[in-house]
Nucleic acid binder design. Sequence first.
DNA 1: CATGAATGAGGTTTCATTCAT
DNA 2: GATGAATGAAACCTCATTCAT
Lengths: 214, 214, 214, 214
Amino acid sequence: MSAAAPVVETRLRDADRSQAAILLAARDEFANHGLAGARVDRIAERADVNKRLIYYYFGSKDDLFLAVLERTYADIREAEQRLHLDEVEPVEAIRQLISFTWHYYLEHPEFITLLNSENLHRAVHLKRSERIQEMNSPLVQLLDGILERGRRQHLFHAGIDPIQLYISIASLCYFYLSNNPTLSAIFGRDLRAPKAMAQRLSHMTELVLGYVMR
Amino acid sequence: MSAAAPVVETRLRDADRSQAAILLAARDEFANHGLAGARVDRIAERADVNKRLIYYYFGSKDDLFLAVLERTYADIREAEQRLHLDEVEPVEAIRQLISFTWHYYLEHPEFITLLNSENLHRAVHLKRSERIQEMNSPLVQLLDGILERGRRQHLFHAGIDPIQLYISIASLCYFYLSNNPTLSAIFGRDLRAPKAMAQRLSHMTELVLGYVMR
Amino acid sequence: MSAAAPVVETRLRDADRSQAAILLAARDEFANHGLAGARVDRIAERADVNKRLIYYYFGSKDDLFLAVLERTYADIREAEQRLHLDEVEPVEAIRQLISFTWHYYLEHPEFITLLNSENLHRAVHLKRSERIQEMNSPLVQLLDGILERGRRQHLFHAGIDPIQLYISIASLCYFYLSNNPTLSAIFGRDLRAPKAMAQRLSHMTELVLGYVMR
Amino acid sequence: MSAAAPVVETRLRDADRSQAAILLAARDEFANHGLAGARVDRIAERADVNKRLIYYYFGSKDDLFLAVLERTYADIREAEQRLHLDEVEPVEAIRQLISFTWHYYLEHPEFITLLNSENLHRAVHLKRSERIQEMNSPLVQLLDGILERGRRQHLFHAGIDPIQLYISIASLCYFYLSNNPTLSAIFGRDLRAPKAMAQRLSHMTELVLGYVMR
DNA sequence: CATGAATGAGGTTTCATTCAT
DNA sequence: GATGAATGAAACCTCATTCAT
């Protein structure tokens, strides 16, 4: 009886391990080459599994891409929740949210390229997902709470749409990093230099706080 | 007006027409499918030319992509110059620049997807271009002029980096449109509704003017 | 009636049930898709058993196909024996045999497609079977008896080969049903209409009786 | 001017030659292995062309299969027309039609297996064909003419449906050859022996003439 | 200037089958 | 008796590119 349990455990762990390895390799491949440019062969190689196993677990390249996207959103939303911004003063909460978003994108360049790929495809994959909206609703609630508290403390002006605000924050962080290669090429300037990066963060913070605070 | 001249002219005009047709078809194809997803066959079909001709004129798929990018930048910078913002009052000039950028991206969705593709490839194509920097320098000069005038009239505060400002304006417009499909999918909200679009434009204008004006 | 016996019995019955389910599912799959087009995965799914079990019981896809064929022949020969044509007047026996063959093929379309598949493969599977000839010999004996009785009663002419006759009867019924799709397509006529079907049966009966009766 | 023509000719001839080679190789491959069992690789090899060329000319395996079917029907209908049965006495015409059908199937075993494959697929390919019905209508007209002449000469009885008759003739010839492998296996008799073959032809002729003649 | 024919390499996906318990 | 995990080979098909005029 006690002998049987580990057997099942091991099996499950192997299956899980294979799936996790595939998901990780797929994330990198899709992030680096886009959906069309990604190669299933390379994913199998990187994950060190048989190519057939990818289809066994995920069905198709497109389904695998959706699985990667879902995992990607789950990761960032989880990290956001770990900030516990609902326990932080409103102004500081906004400041931290900007900083977090900036550094998260910086440390997770795959987030940006995966989303770009999905947008190129007009979100056909995400639209098929049943979990994606509920995964993102806590974020809206969180922002709503911060804005409400700021308004009650007469720090923020009324009528700020949490989604518009979130999009603005994301815009400022995302575009600078996402379009860094072309911007650097057309302006002939190193936008990745430490000083430029630091300036960018304060610039964005000023911009946003200047708007939300009355 | 000899017999030979018109023939040559016609040929040249045909050649120009073919090249223009290819460039236009390629722009749409690359914009809709990305670099890897684009098909040379489809470009030939859409341009109504023989596939071989594409190679005759442009050498390779990658070179064609670069040609499309160069044309794309030339188009937006030309349109910007046509605004003659150097003859407009500073505050109004910023306002118009935001509005122009917003509407240009809106009417030229290919601009966004082409740039995303190029960024996915870390601007390898643009880096090879010899004309791209000089094509974009007038923009920096223009912005510099506006900011300088604003500062002299005590409307804007000092020390605003024109490139940082331009990136912020572009960010706010670009991201909202570029990431519209995924944002709509995760928030379950129609961000393309006319009211949402109008709100977005004033939101962005407030945000930017609130920052540059002292 | 010990405690162990029912367990074993249950197991055996489970085993039988599994085998029967596989055989049935395989028959449908092979009938609908041919040997090459059939999928072991689909058979397992339809039979609601693990794929591995198919190999456990039947060894390989080809062996499974042979098992299906043997079962198919056993079924039709059994049904024929149940007619007890040896107790029926010769003319009526022929009439009933035609009618039975026609209706059996009609109600067992899998019989036709399975045989077509096996013929495509030049009967390599059946040739390996040790039971197939003995399963079919009663049919020849039966026909022989009918023809002999008919001849003695001066109803049929002499020298009719029972196998040739059986093949003719089968031909007329089989081809009409087997090739119905292509015939309907090339003649643009619905050969499955009730009236057409009824006419076909009398046409065939006339044809055959017109030949055997002197 | 005279130099240009052969150039075009050669090109066309090469294209035609390639297509013809593919069609021939495909016919053999599909005939020997069925649609699902056929391999595009083998077709390319047998036709001595690049595999890609098959898709260049025929689009897909299924479209190629349809092309083969259309060619197959064209061939038999052409051969039938070459008999000029409209110039032959009615009874002799029927006799010749049976003999022709028998020998055509005998010399063109691919006709049988191709049709079986298409029937397995419920004629999905033929149903998409726009030419197939018109290709087969001359046959019905021919038969109609023979039956009408026979009736006017008081040789045949009235009310014989030409399509039913054609199906019966085809049945008798087709099934014997098509199902020869399984029939030989279950009856343990060599149905291909010259004597058996000759007997079969007269048996069929007797059967059919016994029916049509009053 | 223009083109129909052709290709080698490699793409995603599927297959019957086996492994390890 | 039964099963989830895994695989090598090969399937159909596509791709950017070149050949031969």
